[in-house]
Design a binder for these strands. Structure first.
Lengths: 141, 141
DNA sequence: GCTTGCTCCTGTAGCCACTACAGGAACTAA
DNA sequence: TTAGTTCCTGTAGTGGCTACAGGAGCAAGC
């Protein structure tokens, strides 16, 4: 059994974040030592590592909780996982597209923008009335 | 002069968000009608629209505040703007790269994952001990 | 004049996923 | 014993909003 510091090292999850996950019920409450300190089994540490890896892949906590409950009831969970992963992939692709469009917009805006000019054409464009209302939508941030 | 509803329509900024911007000191406090309602000039609405466009471009509020103060003192602000825009572009590029790597990782993980399999190889990989610790870094989320 | 329905007001709490701190208790090593 | 480290709980802050409660103002129709 390991203290929270070791669990943090081995899982790559910040100590404060581990306690946060516990408070939120994302991972089960670990046992305690006589002095009241958390003690983690290697199984519990594996769970923490799992959560971190999923977070690194960009999954939200709510999805990760589904994953965790699927790993518990280990029969034919793969279909649901695949669906969730594919939805997440779609979101990632959408974000990449958005950012790419953003990059283009920003590039073309700042390209006219040279040092020493009196009035900045980029700020000017952004302050103008009917500029770029078609492309710069309310698409999710 | 326009009420907050009209200002919201014309600027594309949510009413609640306009009040939030005012509270935070991002835009100046507008005048009030006899009944205590906010009244916006078209100049103030232009500022709101400017903030929204910058937000659409992904700039954080802190940078937008710098932009706004640069538009006030309209002499040779372009150099600073360009630098901020370029830094922001770097961040966007980094995000795109990160997401692209994420997409690859997720694709290769879920590719082995077929419907009906008993134990999901994706969840398995993520739960294993020494998997992918080199590439899945703590890079900023 | 009165009602209906819309817009607006303030203030506060919630969202996500943490992160940071204060003030104290419990271990460990010399 | 003492010093230093790790841990504990509880609370508040981050960014950028969004949502709601409970009330007030205002315009149009009867």
């Amino acid at each position: 059994m390991f203290t929270i510091g070791k669990a943090s090292e081995q899982s790559g999850v910040n100590i404060e974040t581990i306690r946060y996950y516990e408070r939120m019920g994302i991972v089960p409450k670990p046992g305690r030592s006589a002095g009241g300190r958390r003690l983690y089994s290697s199984n519990e540490i594996a769970k923490l590592r799992f959560v971190r890896r999923c977070r690194d892949l960009g999954f939200p906590i709510s999805i990760i909780q589904t994953f965790l409950s699927l790993t518990e009831q280990d029969d034919r969970s793969c279909g649901e996982v695949k669906t969730l992963a594919e939805n997440h992939l779609d979101e990632i692709n959408a974000k990449i597209e958005n950012l790419t469009r953003l990059r283009e917009a920003l590039l073309s805006l700042s390209s006219n923008c040279d040092e020493g000019t009196a009035a900045c054409p980029m700020l000017d464009s952004l302050m103008q009335d009917g500029f770029g209302e078609d492309r710069a939508g309310q698409s999710g941030h």
